[in-house]
Each structure stands twice: as structure tokens, then as C-alpha cells.
Design a protein around this nucleic acid. Structure first.
Lengths: 245, 245
DNA sequence: TCCGTCTATTGGTTAGTCCATTAGACCACA
DNA sequence: TGTGGTCTAATGGACTAACCAATAGACGGA
């Protein structure tokens, strides 16, 4: 649009928002490890002096850092901004926002879950420790017990899938799956609307999957997982659309 | 730790931050579609009156909404807060933060990419349109051309992988892959440090992959993709560690 | 027609003030 | 001895009033 023949000889002079500069500075310190989880930043009033800006500006910077999940702010004496441990919670919220805003269908979300969870079957079968397997069985047991009451083990199913991903022994994969946790719960919620009696069968499938993993039988595990997820996908496809709110 | 025999009979009374209430209200409006991309929120001064709070409070709410990628703020006359189209950029930044903060290794990131991109091979082979295939070839052509100059087609490789994911025709998958775009670029950057002459071979592999997709040969495509990604992973494994600035 | 200027709108920043919450010190009473 | 109030200082939360900076659009002259 604009004539810019000389390339970027002329660079932007705008320095943007001051609060943004502060955000970047703190973010850098955290990324570089000079500030690590649990550390406390100076108080707002002290930060004002350090940066030579007003308190409002510092506070806006802290709001952004907080929204990004980098710090947690506590009030009262000995309060202040504390660097938080890295968490997948906020990424999950971001993904959840993305999904609702882009009005993705439950079918699309389920399919992506399917790709991921099916893809890690070989890794899990290869790397799962006895501890992993025990933990998965334990979740199955709890689910069965919960089924005898009125509680449908919705969160338990999510927990099972998260723990399953953890057995791949790759933190990047665990975090991604955990990030999908929120959206996953949403789609499970949806599934429950459609077929409230799904619980028992799902739990049995989970258990069969653990059996296959324990036997290091990747083929059987993959087949089982495919069935499990496909059934969910089919139920979702029959779900009523546009019933949000 | 605390004695809480009676469950949550005693619930928290804290109403939290005012700005947070505003954030939630606006977020809800956006989620429900009463505000959609491109819409302009009232000016800060008008929002003050509407909510009955001071301008500082409104501004803090806007900072959070902006950090969450829900609105974009423009200054000057006719400026204000505009609802943004849903974008995967911020989720990508979140994932990038997560990766650096949790100090995940490049190997772990690459492995998760591998799972995902390998997993969608069947979907892509089944669903890719002629348009998709043409676009992928076109990126290969551009990469080859760029290789003849000094430009190593780093971004082009990322573009290829993003376009490839798009050919799965599932928006959830495209968005996730795009979210991994930032981290992906980082790992590619890393790969370049190790073997600067990787370019030509990578481009050839991309082209062979498109050939397989065009032939709807999922088996060949998967094998090709596995080779391509595995080679990257191996190079990364040999990469020098802990050289982050 | 085109270019400069003026103006109103709107976000960015500051300073100063007060309130609410909290941890910790201290003290009185049982 | 210890249990529960009270006081105090530190700290974030919110408000007011004012000014600065960027910008779009109107207006007017060459």
C-alpha cells in the first residue's frame, strides 16, 4: 500500500506502550531463568521507581503478565507478584477460546484427539512403566466404583486419558494432551447428553486398553483405542447441533 | 491440611477484582456471539459510565482481554477496542512459553510433531483436494528457487508443514499445527545450527511426500514423512545443549 | 484536485489519594 | 500456657483530575 522502496531503512519510531516494554523485560527475565517459579517481584511502588513510571503503568504490565500466566498476584502484607510454575492450564484455556470462537464442531475436536491419542499408542506401549500401568488400572477401578453410584465418571475419563498420555514419557506430549483437557471435557459433556449410559462400556474399553499396553501389544492397543474413540465420534456426530447456551 | 469436615458449607465470599468481572462479561458476550470479529466496543470513557467504574479499572480489563487475544486496541480518533478474529497466534505463544519455561528439549518437541504429522497422513491422503496438492507443490517450487540464492527456506518449510496440515480439512488440526508453528520454527532454527546444508534434502523430501499424497498412497506417504521427521530428530539429538542465549 | 491545517475523539500516562486485605507483632484474659 | 483480640505496616485495588499523543475527518486555500 505505502511506497517503501528503500526497504526498512526507515524503521518504526514508535516505541509503543510503556507497559508493554515492562512486560517484555520481565518475560525475558523469566525465560532466561533469572526469575524462577516462586520468586517475588518487587512491590508495585518499588517497580514504579525502578522503571521510572507511574503505578498505573506498572499495574497494567502486571495484568498482562498475569493474564499470560507468568505471575500470580497476591494481596495484603507480603503480597505482590510471584512468578508461577509453568502450567498448561492457560494454554488449555486459549485452545478452548479458539475452539468456541472459531465454532469448531465437536467432531473436529474429537478427530484431532483421535489422531494424537492413536499416534502415541506405540510410544506408550514401548515406554510405559509398571507404575504407569498400575495408575491406569487404579483409575479404571475408581471409575467402576463411581459407576455403581450415580456419578458418571466424566472427570475420571479425562483423568484416564491424561494419565495415558503421560505414559508416553514425553513432557511435550503430556502438556499438549493436558491442554486439550478443557475442550475434551466439553466434548465429553456433549457425549453424555446424547447417550447417558455410555459410562460402563467406556470404562471396560479403558481397561482392555491397559491390558494391551501391559502386554506391550501395540497393534491390539491401537485397534482398541481406535474403537473407543470412533464410538465417541459417532455419538457426537448424532448429537444435536447449535444447542450452546 | 485444614479441617473441613463439613465439605464446602463455608464458601468464599471474596468478589475478586472488579476488572475481572468486566473481563468475564465481555468474554461472555464474545463467546455468545453478541459481539463478533470487527465489532467495536464503546470507548473507555463510555465503558466507565456503563459499568460505573473508573477508567483505570476499565483499562485493566481491556489489557487482559487484549492479552487473551480477544480484542485489539487502536489509538486515535475512531480508535478503541475491536473484537479480533479468532487466531491461533496467541495459543502458539502460550505453547512457546510453556516449552521454554518447562525447558522441554527439542527432541521432545520434535517427537510430538512427529506423532501429529504422522497421524494425519491418512486423513490428508484421503481428503486432499487438487488445490491442496497444487499449493504444496508451489511451496516446494518456491523453496527450490530460494535455495539457489542464499536464503535457506526456513519459513518456507514451516509454511509447507502448515499447509500440509490444512489439507486434512479439519480446522482443529490446522489450528493445533499452527499453534506449534512458533516452537516448530525454534526447533528448525536449532536444526540449521547443526547442519546448514540440510535444505536441499528437506525440500526433496517434501516434494516426494506431495507425490505420495497426490497418488493417495498413504503407506508411502507415511514412510516418507517418518523418514523426513526422523532425520530432523536425529540431527537435533546431536545438537549442542544448553546454548540458549 | 490536492495539500496543509485545524479539531474532536480516543487511548496513554501521570500524580495523588483513599480503601481493603493480609501477615505478623503484641497484649490481655482465662 | 495458650487462645483470641487488636494494632500496625506493607501491599494491592480503586478512584479522580488532568494532560499528552496519535489519528481520522472536516475544512479551506492554492
Amino acid at each position: 500500500m505505502r511506497a517503501e522502496g528503500k526497504g526498512d531503512l526507515l524503521n518504526r519510531v514508535s516505541i509503543g506502550r510503556i507497559s508493554e516494554v515492562i512486560v517484555e523485560q520481565v518475560r525475558l527475565l523469566i525465560r532466561q531463568g533469572q526469575l524462577s517459579a516462586g520468586d517475588r517481584l518487587p512491590s508495585e511502588r518499588e517497580l514504579c521507581e525502578r522503571f521510572g513510571v507511574s503505578r498505573v503503568t506498572v499495574r497494567e504490565a502486571l495484568r498482562v503478565l498475569e493474564a499470560n500466566g507468568l505471575v500470580e498476584i497476591r494481596v495484603g502484607a507480603r503480597g505482590g507478584a510471584f512468578v508461577t510454575a509453568p502450567s498448561s492450564r492457560l494454554v488449555g484455556e486459549g485452545i478452548a477460546d479458539l475452539i468456541t470462537l472459531a465454532s469448531l464442531t465437536a467432531v473436529e475436536v474429537t478427530e484431532s484427539r483421535m489422531v494424537f491419542e492413536l499416534g502415541i499408542v506405540p510410544l506408550v506401549c514401548e515406554r510405559a512403566t509398571q507404575e504407569d500401568i498400575d495408575a491406569l488400572y487404579e483409575i479404571c477401578d475408581r471409575s467402576k466404583k463411581a459407576l455403581q453410584g450415580d456419578d458418571y465418571p466424566l472427570e475420571l475419563s479425562a483423568e484416564w486419558h491424561a494419565r495415558y498420555a503421560q505414559a508416553a514419557h514425553n513432557r511435550a506430549i503430556s502438556m499438549l494432551v493436558e491442554s486439550l483437557h478443557g475442550p475434551l471435557l466439553m466434548s465429553l459433556e456433549r457425549a453424555r447428553e446424547v447417550s447417558p449410559m455410555h459410562g460402563r462400556r467406556g470404562v471396560n474399553e479403558h481397561r482392555a486398553l491397559v491390558d494391551a499396553i501391559a502386554a506391550r501389544d501395540a497393534t491390539a492397543a491401537a485397534a482398541q483405542m481406535a474403537t473407543h474413540l470412533k464410538r465417541t465420534a459417532e455419538r457426537l456426530a448424532k448429537a444435536p447441533r447449535g444447542t450452546s447456551a
